[in-house]
Measured scan of single mutants.
Amino acid sequence: QVALSRTQVCGILREELFQGDAFHQSDTHIFIIMGASGDLAKKKIYPTIWWLFRDGLLPENTFIVGYARSRLTVADIRKQSEPFFKATPEEKLKLEDFFARNSYVAGQYDDAASYQRLNSHMNALHLGSQANRLFYLALPPTVYEAVTKNIHESCMSQIGWNRIIVEKPFGRDLQSSDRLSNHISSLFREDQIYRIDHYLGKEMVQNLMVLRFANRIFGPIWNRDNIACVILTFKEPFGTEGRGGYFDEFGIIRDVMQNHLLQMLCLVAMEKPASTNSDDVRDEKVKVLKCISEVQANNVVLGQYVGNPDGEGEATKGYLDDPTVPRGSTTATFAAVVLYVENERWDGVPFILRCGKALNERKAEVRLQFHDVAGDIFHQQCKRNELVIRVQPNEAVYTKMMTKKPGMFFNPEESELDLTYGNRYKNVKLPDAYERLILDVFCGSQMHFVRSDELREAWRIFTPLLHQIELEKPKPIPYIYGSRGPTEADELMKRVGFQYEGTYKWVNPHKL
């Protein structure tokens, strides 16, 4: 086992960053958080920038500027975001240094004079007029057009580079997404736009490419001749908990499936790229999406959770019991969808996408189930092999396979070949997804960000279904809070070829 401390991990990262040409360590950078008073800024962006600063992973002359409508001070920003920093008493001095680099400007999102004030403020910072500028839009999409237009007109660096990070949702359907994309691309070049999907920053999602293309053993079996089906799962054990009003506007397909799960599907299904260059990788992902037809209604199961009468606390409440959810809402909190990649490698292999709230566990994984062994000599005792990439929690890679049961006879039983990170790298604290992705933006690497043509294809696949749901308002199937979801989803999976045995229990190697 390799035991690495946080300091050692960050030392390795620093070495990698400083050796590259793309990370300008000594240049002045300004990180501007648009929507600095909001939840995302408070819980994710400010803490992430602090962790990067604490670990010495930001360029040395980096300033952080918050911008929002609320009249706040840096002290206010500190008060609301610091509880999420997880700072230790030993880091007190470092924390003071961090907040000394912070400033805040209040202004409207659609007022040109406010942006001119913001620009004057940035120019007044040390070497601010020639600094590289990175704008993070932690804002609702309704203000994107006004904000990007004003940034472009008043706040661009004339000497350094300018980059803009856009948070999902990128529209509600193909038409609104196209409108937003066309607007942003009329102001910024594609190499300046970073559409963030934080799932692409997760260690195991990034590991998929290495697993596939750096190991000879997987190449020959990664196709329709050997793989019976692919299941991509995202499960949350909690409901909307008072935030249903926002969720109800989008629903589970827009929230998770059309982005996170579809991105994971691309990494499983794509061909080997010409290189690890950002556009070479994204070219292959677009090719996969172009091979997927629009979702067919007979390959869809929609569910909505109801309270568990035997549960406790939140578990007793259904989705419609959330006071922020519109009365009688038919918005799905669970969806199972089957897609097919219609190309030579994957023809006929079902890709089953499942996601839901208020389920029995927290889990995100990719599961490849292989065909049955031909010419069975073990009297149907063999179960199908599976390769599982567990994204969260407890990152893991393992192969479910058959071995001989101890004893006199040739009785096979299920076991696993474990390729888990935790076994080799004991207690290594890896940077989280937002840390990686923000560092990628500083480096100018777009590999783990969504390109406009990729986004367009993703919406093309799901828009007809979303429009049909909005028009017909089908009643989702009720499922109990804390269950596996509607049984109809299991029946759909069985119908397209997935075999669920229920006889195997994964042993978490992190707890051995």
Results as ranks from 00 to 15, higher is better:
residue 381 Q to F: 09
residue 359 L to T: 03
residue 466 L to M: 11
residue 325 V to P: 02
residue 433 A to I: 15
residue 268 V to I: 12
residue 322 D to N: 12
residue 345 R to Y: 08
residue 256 V to W: 14
residue 303 G to V: 02
residue 319 Y to F: 09
residue 271 E to A: 06
residue 286 V to W: 06
residue 432 D to H: 11
residue 337 V to Y: 01
residue 290 K to P: 00
residue 364 A to E: 13
residue 321 D to W: 05
residue 442 F to D: 00
residue 331 T to H: 02
residue 349 V to G: 01
residue 487 T to A: 15
residue 366 V to G: 01
residue 309 P to E: 09
residue 352 I to W: 00
residue 322 D to A: 08
residue 477 I to C: 03
residue 406 P to A: 14
residue 430 L to W: 13
residue 467 H to F: 09
residue 415 S to H: 12
residue 408 M to N: 15
residue 366 V to H: 00
residue 322 D to P: 03
residue 502 G to H: 14
residue 488 E to H: 06
residue 435 E to Y: 04
residue 471 L to W: 07
residue 465 L to D: 01
residue 341 V to C: 06
residue 355 C to D: 02
residue 455 L to M: 11
residue 304 Q to C: 04
residue 375 G to S: 15
residue 310 D to W: 13
residue 262 L to G: 03
residue 493 M to R: 12
residue 441 V to E: 00
residue 367 R to G: 05
residue 470 E to F: 06
residue 373 V to I: 12
residue 455 L to C: 04
residue 428 V to Q: 11
residue 466 L to K: 02
residue 506 W to A: 15
residue 279 D to W: 07
residue 370 F to I: 04
residue 456 R to I: 07
residue 429 K to F: 14
residue 305 Y to R: 00
residue 349 V to W: 01
residue 351 F to D: 01
residue 436 R to Y: 09
residue 435 E to R: 07
residue 381 Q to H: 08
residue 271 E to S: 08
residue 495 R to T: 08
residue 337 V to N: 05
residue 323 P to E: 11
residue 458 A to Q: 15
residue 416 E to W: 14
residue 421 Y to W: 14
residue 439 L to N: 04
residue 504 Y to D: 14
residue 301 V to L: 09
residue 257 M to G: 04
residue 294 E to L: 05
residue 508 N to K: 12
residue 431 P to F: 03
residue 453 D to K: 03
residue 414 E to H: 14
residue 477 I to V: 13
residue 382 C to R: 13
residue 299 N to G: 04
residue 395 E to R: 14
residue 382 C to S: 13
residue 395 E to Q: 15
residue 454 E to L: 10
residue 365 E to M: 03
residue 338 V to M: 07
residue 358 A to K: 00
residue 390 R to S: 15
residue 354 R to K: 12
residue 422 G to W: 10
residue 324 T to Q: 11
residue 445 S to M: 11
residue 447 M to P: 15
residue 273 P to G: 00
residue 426 K to R: 15
residue 324 T to Y: 15
residue 402 M to V: 08
residue 376 D to R: 09
residue 328 G to Q: 12
residue 267 L to F: 14
residue 294 E to M: 13
residue 367 R to I: 11
residue 385 N to V: 03
residue 277 N to H: 11
residue 282 R to C: 05
residue 434 Y to K: 10
residue 255 D to I: 06
residue 409 F to H: 06
residue 326 P to L: 12
residue 358 A to W: 00
residue 502 G to D: 15
residue 449 F to K: 01
residue 264 M to L: 15
residue 433 A to F: 04
residue 489 A to Y: 08
residue 441 V to F: 04
residue 388 V to F: 10
residue 385 N to P: 09
residue 364 A to C: 08
residue 508 N to I: 15
residue 441 V to N: 00
residue 302 L to K: 01
residue 474 P to A: 06
residue 306 V to D: 09
residue 455 L to A: 04
residue 399 T to N: 04
residue 308 N to S: 10
residue 480 I to V: 10
residue 429 K to C: 15
residue 324 T to E: 13
residue 349 V to Q: 01
residue 413 E to A: 13
residue 477 I to R: 12
residue 272 K to M: 12
residue 476 P to L: 03
residue 459 W to T: 14
residue 269 A to I: 03
residue 286 V to C: 12
residue 286 V to N: 07
residue 299 N to I: 03
residue 273 P to T: 00
residue 296 Q to C: 11
residue 358 A to V: 00
residue 374 A to N: 07
residue 262 L to F: 05
residue 415 S to M: 15
residue 430 L to R: 14
residue 414 E to G: 10
residue 369 Q to C: 14
residue 391 V to I: 08
residue 257 M to L: 08
residue 348 G to V: 01
residue 470 E to C: 07
residue 256 V to M: 13
residue 273 P to M: 02
residue 400 K to N: 15
residue 288 V to P: 00
residue 323 P to D: 04
residue 440 D to K: 05
residue 408 M to E: 15
residue 360 N to S: 14
residue 277 N to S: 12
residue 353 L to K: 01
residue 281 V to R: 02
residue 286 V to Q: 09
residue 377 I to L: 15
residue 427 N to L: 11
residue 435 E to C: 13
residue 325 V to W: 03
residue 364 A to I: 09
residue 400 K to W: 10
residue 255 D to H: 15
residue 290 K to I: 01
residue 272 K to Q: 14
residue 354 R to D: 03
residue 328 G to W: 05
residue 407 G to W: 06
residue 393 P to K: 06
residue 310 D to E: 12
residue 501 E to K: 08
residue 420 T to P: 11
residue 329 S to E: 03
residue 419 L to A: 07
residue 440 D to E: 07
residue 443 C to W: 09
residue 425 Y to I: 15
residue 290 K to E: 08
residue 363 K to W: 05
residue 299 N to V: 05
residue 314 E to L: 12
residue 364 A to D: 09
residue 343 N to E: 02
residue 434 Y to W: 12
residue 341 V to K: 01
residue 353 L to D: 01
residue 273 P to Y: 00
residue 300 V to H: 04
residue 284 E to H: 13
residue 464 P to Y: 04
residue 303 G to M: 01
residue 469 I to N: 07
residue 342 E to A: 07
residue 496 V to N: 12
residue 309 P to F: 07
residue 293 S to Q: 09
residue 372 D to N: 06
